[in-house]
Computed example of a mutant assay.
Amino acid sequence: MGETGSGDGAQTPIGGLPRFLQVALGVVLVLAALMMLKNYSGIFGPIFLALNLMVTAYPLHAWLVRKGCPPALSAAVVALMVFVLLLAMVAGLIWAVNEIIGIIPQYADQFIVLYDQAISFASDMGLDRSSLTGVLSKIDPNSLLNAASSLLTASTGFLGGLSILVCTLVFIAMDTAGFAQRLSIAASTHSRIVAGFRSFSQGVRSYWIVTTVFGLIVAVLDVVALQIMGVSGVVVWGLLSFLTNYIPNIGFVVGLIPPALVALVSLGWKQAVAVIVIYCVLNFVVQTIIQPRFTGDAVGVTPTVSFISLLVWGAVLGALGTLLALPMTLLVKALVIDTDPRTKWVNALIASDPHDAEGAVRQRA
């Protein structure tokens, strides 16, 4: 096996380069790859999203083929279904944000009263009035309206990438019929890479399905709770809760802020606190306690890695990167880390279950 196969191989030069040069070269290549992805994010983002959606829907294609449907027709039906669902979700986001833009001005007077009360309370507590005024001015109704308008512009701007996404869906659908055979042939010479692709497919499929199902459950429970409390616009807040659930870590907070603010200005601070508590409890119970019991951990990485992924891929791919943060990390993990036994220690550090690293290595041995 040579010197690099020893247990201390991390200290042995590989390819004639000292270890520190290998590390430096690796860092440079990673940064270059991220910069390239950022420059072409408008192309890569829609392509990777299309790949995710078709991978997730692939079991439906396989089921239709088993039932006697011609492979080409089955692939076309699945691609069309994926496109319709995606278009419906984008339309839902645009509608929800548009409704928020219409709701905010209705509470402009209440926002002003609340603003004055906060300033007066701060002055009574001895806080600097001018400093607090500068902070609160950033969250006045006009600022909130501008933020919602910017989100609406971003969501409609996504339609510009639909042409790339649709073309990608069409061509992936054309390749779907013979994809299993291609993987089998490739596995005969590059089994670890193919195993990485299959691991990514399984992981990303579980991630999207689990996120959708339990995001829908949380959204329905949020709607019921808000309806009981008398908060207006429950359908909008429920849809926003469902859609923002696809953003890891911070999506829950994004979906919570608008209904909490509406409850604050229309019903009072006690109801606003109740909205926050209910959202937090439902999110914790459903997604932290119940979800893992039925599906296990579909994410595959630790919460810290998940949050860092959100920051990195959001910076690289923009708004679409927040949606694709975990799938991108799963792809890198499956193809770079999971396929190399020497990176077992990295897998143990970032995997949601460290024992998965040992099992993955034994399966590839």
Rank of each mutant, 00 (worst) to 15 (best):
K138T: 14
N146V: 12
A147R: 14
A147Q: 13
A148K: 05
A148H: 00
S150T: 15
L152D: 05
A154C: 12
A154Q: 14
S155W: 11
G157C: 13
G157R: 09
G160Y: 14
G161Y: 10
I164S: 00
L165F: 15
T168E: 03
T168G: 07
T168R: 01
V170I: 14
A173K: 05
D175G: 13
T176G: 11
G178L: 03
Q181D: 15
R182D: 08
L183T: 11
L183V: 08
L183P: 04
S184G: 09
S184K: 12
A186H: 08
T189H: 09
V194R: 00
V194C: 02
F197D: 01
R198S: 12
S199E: 07
S199V: 00
F200E: 00
F200W: 12
V204I: 09
R205M: 07
Y207V: 06
Y207G: 02
I209K: 02
T211E: 11
T211D: 13
T212P: 10
T212C: 15
F214W: 14
I217N: 06
D222Y: 10
D222C: 09
V224I: 15
V224A: 07
A225G: 08
M229S: 00
G233F: 02
V235E: 05
L240H: 06
F242L: 15
F242Y: 13
L243E: 00
T244C: 11
N245G: 11
Y246T: 09
N249C: 11
I250E: 08
I250C: 07
G251S: 01
F252P: 05
V254F: 10
L256Q: 00
P258G: 09
L261Y: 02
L261G: 04
V262M: 13
V262W: 06
L264N: 02
V265K: 03
S266D: 07
G268F: 01
G268H: 05
K270P: 04
V273A: 15
V273L: 15
V273T: 11
A274D: 09
A274E: 08
V275Y: 04
I276V: 12
V277W: 05
I278L: 05
